[in-house]
Design a protein around this nucleic acid. Sequence first.
DNA 1: AATACAAAAAATCTCGAAAATTTATTGACA
DNA 2: TGTCAATAAATTTTCGAGATTTTTTGTATT
Lengths: 236, 236
Amino acid sequence: MEKNSAVAAGRQPKVVGARSLVEAAYATIRHDILDGTLAPGLKLRFEMLRERYGVGASTLREALTRLVGEALVTSEEQRGFRVAEVSLDDFADLTRARKLIEVEALRQSIIFGDDSWEGALVGAFHRLSKVEEKLGSGSPELRDEFEERNRDFHYTLIAACPSRWLKHMHGILFQQSERYRRISLAAKDESRDVHAEHKAVLDAALARDVDLACRLEAEHIDKTLQLLSRRFAPKA
Amino acid sequence: MEKNSAVAAGRQPKVVGARSLVEAAYATIRHDILDGTLAPGLKLRFEMLRERYGVGASTLREALTRLVGEALVTSEEQRGFRVAEVSLDDFADLTRARKLIEVEALRQSIIFGDDSWEGALVGAFHRLSKVEEKLGSGSPELRDEFEERNRDFHYTLIAACPSRWLKHMHGILFQQSERYRRISLAAKDESRDVHAEHKAVLDAALARDVDLACRLEAEHIDKTLQLLSRRFAPKA
DNA sequence: AATACAAAAAATCTCGAAAATTTATTGACA
DNA sequence: TGTCAATAAATTTTCGAGATTTTTTGTATT
């Protein structure tokens, strides 16, 4: 009993919902990468990782391999793992690809969505709005909360799209965008009213105005790229 | 010396180009899944895998985790891995998603492609044609060769597309399609002239007729779904 | 000084066995 | 006979140490 509980306590996944150490390590490392805590390009040495995340080498390798599949980590045979690099070019490319996928998924979602979808969407928007008000203080927990609810809102927008593959692709691209947002736009930009943008997309979706909703969503996705471009573009 | 070479011989990756046992196991298992040798839905027990592929558990887990990222394998926490299931619905969904991505990538590729791209394309088509002639005998090696050259041709078609993300998404979707083709259409269908379809796409691409090439490619992608639908559709 | 090679150090990769979990079997009880 | 709990078996998950490879350091030679 005491042995069991001691071991269990020491090895118990620290991430809620994680059913294995691999999953817990995966979730924590992913969080730290999206966060910027593990900076783009950083070499991920096993000694450091073992100390930081408290799991063995093979467990770490499996967690990292998952992240390679999501393109948050890169690996070079016999030369280990690194946090994936970022660049403005990559973000521009990513944004274009995400627009293509997300707009098509939204189009289908609005067409197929029923009352229950509308309900979930209104709920997700409400939860997002609540945390948007409190935002700005810069607390990491609040930022985490915002990102989670923002993700929920965008996922719910396309939830009624019947294509599993489209939604799978979207998930990967959205997560990539999330990292760029969090790393580059730590502070809130006063020149932008994100809440209003979300509200406009929500209204168009509820009104079943497919073309308007898709146009607004595309503009919404583009906004972050435009912001980043202005800030980081090489002086021509 | 003798110890070293014996171990080295035993552990040397059997897959050409594989720089680690993980990569070799990954490549071999992937081949067997695309092949149908490891059937859809099959439970992948470690004892069986260790015997079959001759590597340890953690090595196998890492290889399987890669395949989960490519959606060829599914995993359930604490309940192991399985070969991903197949269904007509999934293939229909996959085909639609692939058309969206591949057609857009082809559009950009034709616009951006230079003389060197044209050369590579003509070469890939030629190599594909050569193996198409010999096909039909049903030899597994020849089928492997055909699939490789077919993949090369389709990859080269969109190679000049500047979007890394679009090509990344396309890679995943194309590999999925490959499994459906190989599993369900083991034999050559006489009612279809695949060579002529490829030739038509090639000609349109070389003529820089974007719309025609995209339309032909979309039809080409759709053909396999139509064939499978007719064969396996539930009798209404 | 620059280059090439050898030895040492550091890092990754891999295995096998132990720990933890799930699944199957057995036996008690109504 | 059917259900439930306890036990046993099967399976997955995890660790840590050893094997392998890469990188750094040191030394000799030109």
